[in-house]
Design a protein around this nucleic acid. Structure first.
Lengths: 242, 242
DNA sequence: CGGCCGCTTGATGAGTGTCAAGCGCCGTGG
DNA sequence: CCACGGCGCTTGACACTCATCAAGCGGCCG
């Protein structure tokens, strides 16, 4: 992506403030007053754009910002000693990135755009400073960090399940997240490859592919490449709770 | 365990303050000045004791306190709809409990003592209030919460590995944690059953048992029931990094 | 239009769960 | 103090899920 644009726009004030952002419900502004949001809005450095495959930040880089995703999807990956990639999470608009840098001084994951993305930047030091004026802000941040831990617990539970249950839960979760953002919960595009889904779920890409076909044969979903339509949500959910 | 003792002692001021606690390095006091630790010490409600099998808190209960473990080991478990138990974490002295309640209003896990434990209680509201006076405190709390997320990432990576690598990493991690607490890193007692280890690692208890025998046959460790002696730490670590 | 990469589907095998049986330790009660 | 009972641990045999290898297809981008 054009790093020229980035350089220029980084000098400017944000074009879009938090007050007018439609993702407020999901992002930091949740539970803050208008005035408080205004204060937060001031430390949001910029509204950037990146293309598919670009890095929002690299593993090992200094932790110097939280990112609030505005549009697009991001994968959070970590590497082991042998250079194997592990997909830790998929991030959707309204969600924060950077929690993997919170415990140390450096990010332990890389954040990579799966499609064109736009996002805002929040300097942790300023957030911290602002947190003294707005106690609620510190609380929200801690709460969001706790949600990350919660996601980890969900994954532990999921990782003990059969392959088909894992994929069903994954699709149901994606559907729910689309719904929360005002998109169709029954028809959406998978911005990640089968390989990435498999990596995330601890399955081989072939297994993901097979299961999708199987779900389609069972009349649960309809698949056309990256597009997925959920035909029988109850049937899908029955997989998860069982 | 005697709930009488609890009722009585809960009315008292703590006998042991944070200033004199040997676990300060690991617990909240890390990085705080003496005065600040003194302030924290004042909101630490109590120094309690529980026996094996007792619950420190229950899943579904209101999140009303953090716990700082002083001695003993605790398992953090969550349940799925079918009532299956999933071991989320093992907690050792100096570590905080309660992060699973941070994102909502209720705990999502139960904390169960694996042996006699003692611990302190920290009311989140008071911590939050104190955080306004001591910015560093909010920071530490957020950092500790971030470490929980970090542990989740480690588990993701580990869960993709072979059974023997998982167990080797588990033993090495336990060893390291013992070392940090001033105990022998080469000889220690497993306070959890093979079943619980297996549950934690995503393995059947039989597999854990078999692998321990295998490690012993390879001269890596020496097993006598719950006692483990590590004979070849390098050999064990070679499993993990590979 | 061509090439590449991602997706699909099939065949095979390895790793690990499951079932089963026996052992031994520990706590309990006579 | 010893006998009993139970539970956790060990070890073996077998089955099954899912990874791996392989080949062919198809869509997207250059």
């Amino acid at each position: 992506m054009s790093s020229f644009q980035q350089l220029f726009s980084s000098k400017r004030r944000p074009q879009v403030s938090c007050e007018s952002c439609s993702l407020g419900r999901l992002c930091i502004p949740q539970g803050l007053s208008e005035q408080e949001v205004e204060l937060v809005s001031r430390i949001v450095t910029i509204n950037r754009t990146l293309g598919k495959g670009d890095y929002l930040y690299h593993s090992g880089e200094w932790f110097h910002r939280f990112l609030a995703l505005k549009s697009g999807t991001v994968k959070l990956v970590t590497l082991d000693g042998a250079g194997n990639e592990y997909v830790v999470d998929f991030v959707m608009p309204g969600e924060l990135l950077g929690f993997d840098g919170l415990s140390g001084e450096r990010y332990t994951c890389s954040a990579i755009a799966l499609e064109t993305v736009s996002y805002c930047e929040l300097p942790p030091h300023q957030l911290e400073r602002l947190g003294r004026e707005i106690p609620k802000l510190s609380q929200i941040l801690l709460q969001l960090s706790g949600s990350q831990f919660q996601l980890g617990i969900q994954r532990v539970v999921l990782s003990r399940r059969q392959a088909d249950e894992r994929l069903a839960a994954f699709l149901a979760h994606l559907s729910e997240r689309h719904r929360k953002r005002g998109f169709s919960p029954t028809e959406f595009r998978l911005s990640m490859t089968r390989q990435e889904i498999g990596n995330y779920l601890g399955l081989a890409p072939e297994t993901v592919s097979r299961l999708m076909s199987q779900f389609e044969a069972s009349g649960l979903i309809l698949v056309q490449g990256k597009m997925v339509r959920i035909l029988d949500m109850d049937g899908l959910l029955r997989f998860c709770s069982q």
